[in-house]
């Protein structure tokens, strides 16, 4: 047993050397953004970043237990709560894009004609067309619930309100198959739109639909064994001008627009601990 334990330790150490763990929302990972910018960091610092792609809610939960060294998420009020509880430090706004309401090209609810985002939600609510919610604790789900609340609507229990319980890509696929509406981040939508039958019906950069990505270091004081200095180095790297430019340029040519707009650490949506 002792030998076995020693073996486990050896294993653990081998993995720990020169690496750190980052929990991210699926959108920045599945879009390939991290794979485009992280290798350069590894070359420069010798630190390998192990990415665990989950929803924002799960990423913050994992980080809250000290199981990763940093997070990259997109839910400002959850981030504020995370900071307030002392679980995270060194918050930095990295990039933004916007949320999109996607749905069938036929648009039975007339979302494309909506005056604003809240009107779009009301149109869906009134039409009784299917709407697929993520139903998890992701940043996108969090925003969807805020929109319903702001529009003073309660979709829960309605026969047209379905919860997928899965990631953004799967939810978009499900929405396309069911000819349903759903709220998605722009990045995932652009990546999926050619693979499935769904279109962006409401895609306007207004404050309510703003999608802001932030980086936080897990509070080094809370747990032993965190690789916090690596997490701080990654923070500086991500905020560096050339890297911010790379984020801005990512896939710009392919899609004719920026997938992620650089924020250089200046938040558009306030994150107040």
């Amino acid at each position: 047993m002792k030998k076995l334990l020693a073996l486990f330790w050896l294993f653990a150490l081998a993995f720990a050397a020169g690496s750190m763990r980052l929990a991210t929302t699926t959108s920045v990972n599945d879009s390939g953004l991290l794979e485009a910018i992280l290798p350069q960091f590894t070359v420069e610092s010798g630190i390998e970043v192990e990415v665990i792609a989950v929803g924002t809610g799960q990423a913050l939960a994992i980080a809250g237990r000290g199981d990763v060294d940093a997070v990259l998420v997109h839910a400002p009020d959850l981030e504020a709560k995370f900071l307030r509880e002392g679980k995270g430090v060194a918050h930095a706004c990295l990039a933004y894009n916007n949320f999109v309401i996607a749905g069938p090209a036929a648009d039975p609810a007339g979302v494309a004609q909506a005056a604003d985002a809240l009107d779009a939600m009301r149109r869906i609510y009134r039409s009784g067309a299917l709407f697929i919610s993520r139903g998890d604790k992701s940043g996108t789900y969090h925003r969807e619930r805020s929109l319903w609340r702001a529009a003073k609507l309660v979709p829960d229990g309605r026969p047209w309100y379905l919860e997928s319980g899965s990631g953004m890509g799967s939810t978009l696929t499900l929405a396309a198959e069911k000819r349903a509406y759903t709220l998605t981040d722009l990045g995932t939508f652009l990546f999926m739109k050619d693979k499935i039958a769904i279109v962006d019906l409401y895609n306007r950069p207004e404050p309510l639909m703003l999608n802001q990505y932030s980086y936080m270091v897990v509070n080094p004081k809370r747990f032993q064994g965190l690789r916090s200095s690596a997490a701080y180095r990654l923070r500086s790297y991500l905020l560096r001008d050339d890297v911010q430019q790379a984020i801005d340029d990512y896939m710009k040519e392919k899609f004719g627009q920026s997938l992620f707009h650089a924020l250089h650490g200046k938040c558009l949506m306030e994150v107040k601990p």
């Binding site: 486990f8 653990a12 720990a16 192990e50 665990i52 000290g66 990763v68 032993q224 064994g225």
Partner: peptide, 8 residues
């Protein structure tokens, strides 16, 4: 938790 074995 000290083992650092999660996610390995």
């Amino acid at each position: 938790g000290k083992s650092g074995l999660l996610f390995t």
